[in-house]
Design a protein around this nucleic acid. Structure first.
Length: 279
DNA sequence: AACAAGACCTGCATGC
DNA sequence: TGCATGCAGGTCTTGT
């Protein structure tokens, strides 16, 4: 489900109810998700105060007052849902429950592609899940020249390469298509050909689309909800994603003549684009 | 080294 | 109604 804007939205929602609060109890309802929970997972969190909740790429990072960091990933279908304290009616796919005096937070994930694990703040950046991540796209250090350097020598299609979290961290299948549309670049172009002004345009497009999506609370297709239960609204602003055959919002060509937005499959995943406007 | 394909899961829409 | 198929916001491993 969640790409950078959805995870950012989830982290902001969780911060409001968890930051500064003590987690009294952690209920673990199965032994593993995508990966096993580490030994003592619940006990190592219970009784600790939450110092901060932040995001890196598509990972949620919950820092505790003893230097422990809970790393969470929502996979395709994960959600964090805030409810009243001491909630005793749970869904089949509620795998972890964090309890404070004021609220309960459930990690729900039907497909179980998500994960939760523990590390320590002082070795966080070396954790295998985080060590090889590329730059945060919304950081000032993510620039046209920096992206061009990361794409140098990459012969794969631009769309597929941008999904590689080592190139840039946080893009997923929706926002890659949307950013390429805004930048006027074909998803099929060899990644290494994006240099100079094209790289500048692409970086601008990535920053813009992600920022706008965060402001809209992310995109709700199937699974994403903010922790409060509110939906995201950015799906109403998609130019190309899941719009096969519909008119391209950028050119006034007749979709019955041009076919409108095209859907192709790259590396086994759908890509949407306007062949006329994206080169 | 780079890339594609398969694997991991459940749920939902579609078509017979 | 039931059943089979294909598809879904992600990553990790395997094989060429």
């Amino acid at each position: 489900m969640p790409e950078l804007p959805e995870v950012e939205t989830v982290c902001r929602g969780l911060a409001r109810v968890l930051e500064g609060r003590v987690i009294d109890r952690v209920v673990l309802r199965r032994a593993d998700l995508r990966t096993p929970f580490p030994p003592g997972f619940a006990d190592r969190i219970a009784g600790r105060r939450v110092v901060s909740i932040r995001r890196r790429a598509k990972f949620m990072l919950m820092a505790l007052d003893d230097g422990t960091v809970v790393i969470g990933h929502l996979g395709m279908s994960g959600r964090m849902v805030i409810g009243p304290p001491r909630l005793n009616v749970l869904d089949r796919h509620d795998h972890v429950v964090f309890e404070t005096a004021e609220a309960s937070v459930r990690f729900n994930d039907p497909r179980r592609f998500g994960l939760m694990t523990l590390t320590a703040e002082d070795v966080l950046s070396e954790h295998p899940l985080l060590a090889r991540l590329g730059p945060e796209p919304l950081d000032d250090s993510f620039t046209g020249p920096a992206l061009a350097a990361a794409l140098r020598g990459k012969n794969g299609p631009l769309k597929t390469v941008l999904l590689d979290q080592r190139v840039v961290a946080g893009l997923g299948n929706i926002y890659v298509s949307e950013a390429l549309f805004r930048a006027g670049l074909s998803p099929r172009r060899a990644a290494r050909t994006v240099t100079g002004g094209r790289a500048d345009r692409l970086v601008r497009a990535i920053k813009d689309v992600l920022s706008e999506a965060i402001a809209a609370g992310g995109s709700t297709l199937r699974d994403h909800v903010q922790p409060t239960g509110e939906l995201g609204y950015f799906q109403h602003r998609f130019a190309v994603y899941d719009r096969e055959g519909q008119p391209c919002p950028g050119c006034d060509c007749d979709p019955s003549a041009t076919g409108g937005i095209r859907r192709i499959v790259q590396a086994g995943r759908s890509t949407f684009f306007c062949p006329k406007r994206q080169r």
